[in-house]
Design a protein around this nucleic acid. Structure first.
Lengths: 233, 233, 233, 233
DNA sequence: CATGAATGAGTGTTCATTCAT
DNA sequence: CATGAATGAACACTCATTCAT
């Protein structure tokens, strides 16, 4: 019970965090507006550019320009380019599972259907959005920013895995799935969609239109393949 | 006789030496002439550093130093940093792949088994080695070096996809697999192993031992899930 | 009163200072902000060094140092070494020429006199100054920097030729000169003064005083020889 | 007399020099041929390249390659690139006036005709040939190689000036020319043809065909303009 | 003698970071 | 607070010169 409680507490915290998020503040006084919004505007600009060009290839001057301030001002809010990068990742690490997890918990019905629905939801709410660039960013720069990698693992990967794990386990418990190794199967579910995100932000853009993957179709077929592979008999 | 004997002995020694360590033959001179070995040594050093630090963050001088030569010497063998990278890819990905593809062509038997075998082979020969860092590197830096990305797509990705595609198609033609969309299924096969490689070179190292994925087990189960999912009835 | 007087005196001084040496106004700060003056100072420094050592042999760092700034600052104002050179040419050759050409247009009188006057003016305003080193420089390095050569031809040579051509043609039309081939005659006018410039910046300095050419006398006599050679009867 | 004798002696010397010139040796033994010819071949290759690209832009490796030897071999014969440059200039400083001077001395007739003939001869024998690149080279690099400039002045310029001076003086003495300042007039004669050489090796090649100067026509018209300008009445 | 592999100081250019105003 | 001019340490790449063979 304590565990569950503390888990809820953490969840709440992160929800609160999301509200206090400087990107979305209560309407401030006109005079202070600019000042308070600065960091958020810089982070937003930086997110775009980091995702598009990577950490090394993004110039702070460009970030500042896109945020409509001077280069010097950027360093007033972030002590270094690395610091800015960390802030970008931290700020955008809104786990797309917080809300989704609740819905999943209330889901009544076949786990196979749930799995397919979950993956499609994940794609629509996260994978298809700009924010998914964060995942690419983290995988790309993990070795240079191990602390961010750990942060991401803890805040995003593990909750996501827990969610998928619970669905798979429920499917097995209900006799809907064969008793496979859940820890391994979990990656069969997650890997392709994470890969999709990586692809979208790396090699995808340099492939001709004829070779583009249709994400929804791919996810649907993949989910069905897996569910069929998991089903008993 | 003694003289002759000792002479023979020396001869043998140097022959042995050559077999044991061809990189260090006879007393090495300050200015060694090893035109034959240089490119290989440089490629090896470059592989290590590119994998470790990424393309942009690796300085050519470092590569040269690790190969035991000066900066200028590197440019004697490779006309640019990009050229060096291409050589690394050619040497470590293209050549081994060509060899592997030939073996697949000769395979007689169930396509399901072939699929599993292919993925495991791919893991042992490539995924498990440091060379697989190249794949991570490419995905990380593709947007900044479109020429490299195109080169990789053309030389590595497309041949690999063609191979998997042919196996899936054969399976369908032989009635072993259901007539799924091959272009989509292909990614269900490849994505998880590529993701495994990404993971290994990014977030993997910051996970505790307890959360490590056992690659062989994962690949085996994944292949079987897919094959089961693909099988008719 | 003394105070006021001395104050006035100081004010006057600084006004004078500004007139005498606008480069050193008020107490200079370590990090001076002189966006207005910088380009001019850099162009001036570049002119000196280009003339002295040639384009290729001049290092941008040296130019920056002579202008009292760092290497990076130079690139704040000029995007490349070639760009800097073009600015030097524009500032020192193109602008003054445009002004001179206007005066020629207003000249009323004998074309023979005009020719002599033009050549002498050209010498005083350009040939005799260090700026004329640019012409030598261009001829020396034209083959290596075709873009610069084309730029110079277009911006300097052709306008100058057009000017001389127009004077010759007018002389012929007015019956003051014989109807010679204007395109050839044009070079008889220009070549000697350009040669004078080349000489001044190449072999001249290594000739003993006794062999120095007096430019004004030479130009005067040359002009008169030509005019006499061009006159009818 | 002594003067004249020593002058002749020097003339002979330089003729002898020309014969001993490694570029044109008596047929040597086959075995030694290569060795003896090396420096000459290198100098020839270097002349071409220095003329074409200037000193700084010519790479010794290119010179060696054009001469068919390795880079190392070049340094066997010339201790440095500068040394090679000096050898090129020295070796090619065959005064085109040695033979011409004799012919001029024997000329009987109008000095005006002689002047025109001299300039045309000079063009055909020197200006139009590859060797005229030397003049361009020297003017371009004079400031970097003052000793070569002095050498050139002494060996080429002064004899040439003496020749032209003598013709002008004779013309004045014979009442064929007006008594102008000979030292100045001399440059009116020489400058245009030297300029022609500079032009040919610098900006000429980057001008469109329509703007090319026809050398013979220019020299002819220029000579006639001058002679007319010099003639009395 | 001739080679050519190796060197390393030097070049133009970029960009995160600083700091006087 | 905000600016933006200035900095200087890098970096990829070049090339005259050396020297072991």
């Amino acid at each position: 019970m304590t565990k569950q409680g503390s888990w809820e507490y953490i969840t709440n915290q992160s929800v609160i965090k999301q509200c206090v998020n400087p990107l979305d503040p209560a309407p401030p006084h006109k005079r202070e507006r600019r000042k308070q919004e600065r960091p958020g505007e810089l982070i937003e600009a930086a997110l775009d550019l980091f995702v598009e060009k990577g950490f090394a290839a993004t110039r702070v001057e460009e970030v500042a320009a896109r945020a409509g301030v001077s280069k010097g001002t950027l360093f007033l809010y972030f002590s270094s380019k690395e610091d800015l990068f960390k802030a970008v990742v931290r700020e955008n690490l809104v786990s797309p599972f917080v809300q989704g997890a609740a819905e999943v918990g209330q889901f009544q019905g076949h786990c196979g259907e749930l799995l397919e629905w979950m993956l499609l939801q994940w794609w629509h709410r996260y994978g298809a959005t700009k924010t998914s660039g964060i995942s690419k960013l983290i995988m790309s720069e993990a070795t240079n920013f191990p602390e961010l990698a750990a942060f991401y693992r803890h805040e995003v990967i593990e909750p996501a895995q827990a969610l998928v794990r619970s669905v798979l386990q429920r499917g097995i418990d209900q006799g809907e799935f064969r008793p496979v190794d859940v820890e391994l199967a979990l990656h069969s579910v997650i890997a392709p969609v994470l890969f999709l995100v990586m692809w979208k932000h790396s090699l995808g853009p340099c492939c001709p239109a004829s070779e583009q993957i249709n994400p929804e179709e791919f996810i649907t077929q993949h989910a069905r393949l897996l569910v069929r592979g998991l089903s008993p008999v």
